[in-house]
Amino acid sequence: MEHAISMTGVEKHYQDFKLDNLSFTLPAGTIMGLIGENGAGKSTTIKLILDLISRDKGEVQVLGQPNRALPKPLREHIGVVLEECTFPDTLTAHHINKILKNIFQTWNEDQFHAYIQRFQVPAQKKVKELSRGMKMKLSIAAALSHDSKLLILDEATSGLDPIVRDEMLDVFLDFMKDETHSILMSSHILSDLEKVSDYIAFMHRGKLLFCEEKDALLDRYGVLKCAKEDLDRLNPSIIKGVRQHQFGAEALVDRDALKGTWTVERATIEDIMIFFAKENGR
């Protein structure tokens, strides 16, 4: 299996929104960060991958098999953490262990308890009494306590404080030590994605603007700070986006194609996302 996920020409039409011709692959053994503004289509993409909603066009493969009617033994290997905590709110971690033990054949009770302890989730408290951070940690513990080879995380780290987020990123990197493991994670916290991702896929208004290796992206783009007039002297094809302010202008530029002596700063994923979104009409 080369690809953990592959989408080819996937489309989904709603009255006021269209997911357009979406194609990308998540190579096995890598982490892909899915970024984009609210309503860009990240959650719709994840729902399409999980076959929760039907697509109008295209093909989706998960762990090397068509995602529709994915055989149950293969589903054992997919760990999912959704944006909201989806455990009935009157249950406790203790109940959840008993339920999932009867759903996953590969459920590892000891591992679940170990995670719960490590994450300091109170095992006897009802889900509704837990903070958002605790709920997410509970969901992450569950996703890691069966034989997951692919993790799909939809905003799994939002609502967690920076220290816990860092701890979770370490847990995810630990998971990646097995080179057949892969992660697709959407998040608004771009610094997290910048830390762990191998690939960045950027969605904007239902379209995939790019899906590239993170290091290549960071190498290629830079932020040029100059006077507004200076921008006119540049070849327009190397400018990927412009931000003007009172004292001058900033432009996202293709560093290799930039000739001459300019002050170019390293672009972050956040810079790249904002400049691209501006250029493509916010």
Binding site: L50, L52, K72, V80, L82, E84, T86, P88, D89, Q105
Partner: peptide, 15 residues
């Protein structure tokens, strides 16, 4: 209860 927790969405990602 399932509706309130959005359980179906989660359950369908499992076996």
């Amino acid at each position: 209860f399932d509706e309130r927790a959005n359980w179906d969405k989660y359950a369908l990602t499992m076996p």
